[in-house]
Amino acid sequence: MLRHRLNLKDGKIIRKIMEAGKENKLIVSVSPHIKSSESVDKIMWTVTATLLPTFVMGVYYFGPKAVIVTLLCIIGSLLSEYFVQKLAGKDISLKDGSAVLTGLLLGMNMPSTLPFYIPLLSSFVAVAITKQLFGGLGYNIFNPALMGRAFALITWPRAMTTWAEPIANFTGMDAKTTATPLGILKEQGLDKLLEVFGSKMHLYSELLLGHRAGSLGETSVIAILIGAAFLLLRGYITLRIPAAFLAAVAAGAWVFGGKQGIFTGDPLVHVLSGGLMLGAFYMATDYVTCPTTKKGQMLFGAGCGLLTILIRLKAGYPEGVMFSILIMNCFTPLIDRGFRTEVFGAKKKA
């Protein structure tokens, strides 16, 4: 990858030709000589932009506090990235969008009722510890935003599970606190949930629209799907992980989720509630922390789904998306090693 000055000593022809060439300089480097216009920056900013509908719905339901929490997360991420890179003597990479995206995703995974220091400290854990200290973009083992959220959940369990009632109000008044659908499901069961939401159809439609308690960006399934559809169409993500993830949750909920024995669960309630959609389309598909081969990705998605339903049905937390993705992140290197691609012309097994 050298930039040579062209040898001009031979003949007038070359000189004449080269006078036309800019500064008499031609690039000399290794093939290929053309590259696609795709770049890391473009990917990060595009993914960030597709979260806009989700963010807007979060603000619609949870008011100005949602904006503040999200902004604090983004600012915290940018500051963390800047200071660690500065201390480590690395190039500052704020403009690549990855810190903004991590901050935004972290914000989407938080309740609106938090005091200011929780978003700031969580984004420090996400960006400075989980990402930069492991080597920066590309080298982190865990999904940074989820690690930040896990830190917050364990450190401030009460604050992180205090959910505001979703009312489209912009007065800035404190809304009443309430429980998430999954919380009700866990503590009081499906009948209570149906009682709260009226009918099953109403429950589904409220879950789709996002009119329910929860993290800022996880409630509106429709908004998440709009953004995800764009990413799918652009080829930025594939369905391999999300589909396997959702299918595994649905299957697990159907088989083990019912009160009347196996095969009596309601898969749709589980699929539409909690952070599953946000997790399946935006968190589990994080390039850095998911496997790279087709088979590996499907296994990864299925693993996330099974762990999620296991936690939701059997563990202490009502929601398991975050922990399941973080646990599967640990297995990514192993999966990548075990599910390599098949080389063209490799001997087929008999």
Binding site: E38, V40, I43, D96, G135, G136, L137, G138, Y139, Y287, V288, C290, T292, T293
Partner: peptide, 8 residues
């Protein structure tokens, strides 16, 4: 840049 393991 660092490889972001996007798999492209």
């Amino acid at each position: 840049n660092n490889c972001i393991r996007c798999g492209r």
